[in-house]
Design a protein around this nucleic acid. Structure first.
Lengths: 197, 197
DNA sequence: ATTGTTTTAAAATGAATATTACAAAATGAT
DNA sequence: ATCATTTTGTAATATTCATTTTAAAACAAT
């Protein structure tokens, strides 16, 4: 009972997430979020709580939709597992419209500096999603025979995770994009091809 | 002629830099900088200009002193070039007092999102310092015979740069520190040992 | 239709912000 | 010693910010 919500929560969360992703937490004002969502502060505060709660919701939404979706498309659903892995990394370098929004996990990790436990927890969740996706993909590559069996898919997956986040720093800065493009495949392959010693 | 400056500019710039490095640009207030430096806003505005100018000065100071100093100590002046390179990377994981200030280049790249040309320019300068240091070190390792001659020290140096920035994202988040510690040497060695094909 | 409940928009609030204005203090030159 | 100049601390300013308040609007149940 009572008045119905006037908005689609997933659409609104997506707009909020994009705003935080582009501008960061501190640089985003409630007014920015009002503009991005078309809602007024009354609705935002009533539905989500304050600015910090809005950010929490955005970060969770990012994990549940953006990160999972990318893993699903590029990794789990791909025909050629090695190529899918490479495509995922190369896609980081090709943001549409000359934007450099990067990754909300990267941006949040750097901005929040391990100050809020629940934020760090959400970051851990997101990083773990990527890490597990990488590990599955490495094992898939071994199974298909594209690469020799890796001595430690676990170690390789964290090395891919570091590479992933490192690239996103330069994406965000708008620097070294071409140079990274040129060396990316080689870096992926040397990580992936961890021969059994 | 006129009244003398009451402070040591290098000391003050160092305090300003530490503050921005720890909290980021937006989250740092002029009052924070007053506390960190012991100066009042009158002096700060008279000597440096506004907040943006303070940040510019801090970023330049970071390049000229912190980055150069680290390269000098860990790379250029080291007896064992391979060990120096490894030590440099491991030092990222061992910030004193449980702090996670990370690197001002990383933090700024992520926060500023390529919006201010002169900031991006300073970032490019800092990244280039690291990149060139890495390249010299790789060549030194070849000369001493610690590693075989690399097919492309240039490519290897940018891969080290990505690794460096990627690690700093996790340092800042306070996540995966032990896991990175375990795999770091291996990652460095595989980048360094780019055999001539 | 009335009641109770929730959502919404707009205005109000109060704190924090970057910056400026200004007068006193400190210095060197004359 | 006076003057001109620069620095410094304090106070003032004006804006922006997150949040709260408030009343009207929209719904479901009775």
């Amino acid at each position: 009972m009572g008045r119905n919500l006037s908005f689609d929560e997933k659409k609104v969360l997506s707009a909020i997430t994009d705003t935080f992703r582009q501008k960061g937490y501190e640089a985003t004002s409630i007014k920015d979020i009002e503009k991005a969502t078309g809602l007024t502060s009354g609705s935002l505060y009533n539905s989500f709580g304050g600015k910090e709660a809005l950010f929490d919701a955005a970060l969770s939404h990012y994990n549940d939709y953006v990160v999972r979706h990318r893993i699903s498309i590029y990794l789990d659903k791909t025909e050629d597992p090695l190529q899918g892995l490479k495509d995922l990394f190369h896609s980081l370098l090709k943001e549409p419209d000359g934007l450099s929004n990067g990754c909300l996990l990267t941006n949040t990790a750097v901005e929040f500096n391990n100050r809020l436990r629940h934020i760090t927890q959400d970051l851990d969740t997101g990083f773990s999603l990527l890490e597990a996706g990488f590990k599955r993909q490495i094992e898939k590559c071994s199974t298909t025979g594209q690469i020799p069996k890796h001595s430690s898919p676990q170690q390789a997956s964290i090395r891919l995770l570091i590479l992933y986040q490192g690239i996103l720093v330069f994406v965000r800065a708008g620097l070294r994009i071409n140079e990274i493009e040129l060396t990316l495949d080689q870096e992926i392959e040397t990580i992936i091809r961890g021969d059994i010693s």
